[in-house]
Amino acid sequence: MAVIWRNFSSFIRSSISYSTGVSIAESSGRTVGVTELQTMVKSVIPPLTNDLHKGQAGRIGIIGGCQEYTGAPYFSAITALKVGADLAHVFCTKEAAPVIKSYSPELIVHPILDHVNALAEFEKWLPRLHTLVVGPGLGRDTEVLKTVSSVIQNCKARGIPLVIDADGLFLITESPELVVSYTNTVLTPNVVEFQRLFDKMIGERPGQNQDLAANTKLLAQCMGNLTILQKGSEDIISDGNTVIMCSTDGCPRRCGGQGDLLSGSTGVFYNWAVKKSADGTAILGPGVLAGYMACRLIRECSRRAFTSNGRSMVASDLIPHIHQSFDDIFV
């Protein structure tokens, strides 16, 4: 399988073209300007009306949380709620559940990830979810990863959009066939995770002087046009057809947890963007739109948190800024 991917990637590398310059996005040969992009972004956000019922704005699942890592799934889930989801479910191991529950009464916590009947338990909940975020605080326990692999397959069968981050990306790098060509997927690698996945799929590490945008687009194509959100000093989002660069001011602080906020917000925006794409008016793919919106929001939250806290900033300092940042950017 790896040989096939590498041969396919050689064809793509020879035919790929990407123009940087002042363009915000390139989609099917046309440039999307700032004003048009902002209009598309705002159209994704569902209006708040008095006739809504609980769950319509999003039921988001988070798979992650083990003995060592309990903060990551909390950050992802609470961000999903703060961005606008109605319900956030955390599927974690038994040991992690009491700790995560203690962080917030807003979260619905399921201690089933290491349960002997985990897959049967998941089947009760998957039909209720709009998006599943896989990876925050997941850990690398072999049996847990086997369970998560089966859950991913079940999500694909149901058409549930996936956002995969952190140790979820470790799983995908080991077994990329789990998501290859499942276009309802957003992967959110940092620089190191991107390099490992690129090496797995292309057969070589990306060069330091290579075009990061072109490499992101190439990897997305090699994985069957799912969406790659490569995090870095400049976030790059591509589904193999479109490339968006998000380089608005963030902060120089690299404390743990900021990526978990990004994955949780991506889960919410992805649900909204998928629903919007059903009306046929969206120029950009839902994964690309969701990734851009999440990057834009979390960068602004981190900028404001750093302005207030400087070197002392931690991930939880971003959460109080979600509301105002969201309003200032999207409303």
Rank of each mutant, 00 (worst) to 15 (best):
H130E: 05
G240D: 07
T142N: 11
V151P: 09
R205K: 15
Q208Y: 08
G168E: 03
I228R: 00
K200L: 03
C222H: 08
L169N: 09
L229H: 14
T183Q: 15
K146E: 15
T147S: 03
V179E: 00
A213R: 05
R196W: 08
N154S: 14
N241T: 13
R128H: 15
P136G: 08
T242G: 01
T242E: 13
C155L: 11
A157R: 14
L169F: 10
Q210T: 12
I202C: 08
D239M: 05
I172M: 06
A213N: 05
A157D: 08
P189E: 03
L178Q: 07
Q221M: 15
I152L: 15
L132I: 15
Q221K: 14
N184V: 00
Q153I: 12
L138N: 05
M245P: 00
L126T: 01
K231D: 09
H130V: 03
T131R: 00
L218M: 11
N190E: 07
P189M: 06
R205V: 00
Q153A: 14
K156P: 01
L226V: 02
G203S: 08
V163S: 13
V151D: 06
L218C: 09
R140V: 10
E143I: 13
V179R: 01
I236K: 05
P136S: 14
P176T: 10
L229Q: 11
N209L: 12
T183Y: 04
A157F: 02
V180R: 13
K146F: 09
F170H: 15
A220Q: 03
D141V: 07
V191Y: 09
L226N: 01
M223T: 08
F170R: 13
R158E: 00
R128A: 13
M201N: 11
E177S: 14
Q221C: 13
D211S: 02
T242M: 06
G240A: 09
Q221Y: 11
L162G: 12
E177K: 11
V133H: 12
V186S: 03
L187K: 09
L145H: 08
L197H: 07
F170V: 15
L126V: 04
M245G: 03
N184Y: 07
K146Y: 12
F194P: 01
P189S: 10
E193P: 04
L171H: 04
H130M: 07
V243H: 10
L219V: 00
G207Y: 10
R128Y: 15
V179Y: 00
G207D: 13
N241F: 10
D239P: 05
K146M: 11
K146W: 09
I164A: 04
K146V: 10
I236F: 04
N241S: 14
G203P: 02
R196T: 01
S233L: 14
I172Q: 10
L169E: 05
R205S: 14
S233F: 11
V180E: 05
Q221N: 12
D239Y: 13
L229D: 10
S150V: 12
G240N: 11
V243R: 10
K200T: 01
S175D: 03
G207I: 02
V163C: 15
D239A: 07
G203E: 02
G159R: 08
A220S: 12
R158C: 01
K156Y: 01
T227D: 07
V134A: 09
L226C: 02
G168T: 02
T131K: 00
P136C: 12
T188D: 09
L226P: 02
L169C: 09
I172H: 09
P189C: 03
Q221I: 06
V191L: 14
R205Y: 14
